[in-house]
Amino acid sequence: MFLLPLILGIGIGFGLAYAMVGFLAVKSNDIGNSKGDFQDFADNTVHIKVAENNVSGGNFYDL
């Protein structure tokens, strides 16, 4: 019971390091990495009718 925790520990440790350095690299080197969002283009908010957990799709109500 030594090898398995070691392999998993290395997996988690280097996985986290890889993701963290990647995140920092994006923050540091990648500028303006965003697009226009819904509010930039939509004239009005989405009018939504909702029916939750109802596969037949009936019983809609306004959100």
Partner: peptide, 21 residues
């Protein structure tokens, strides 16, 4: 930084995983 950070986090994770298992 990946190697240094990875080594430190691996040691901590190893201890954590060992207790879990």
């Amino acid at each position: 930084p990946t190697l240094v950070l990875g080594s430190l986090l691996s040691m901590t994770s190893f201890k954590f995983v060992e207790t879990l298992l």
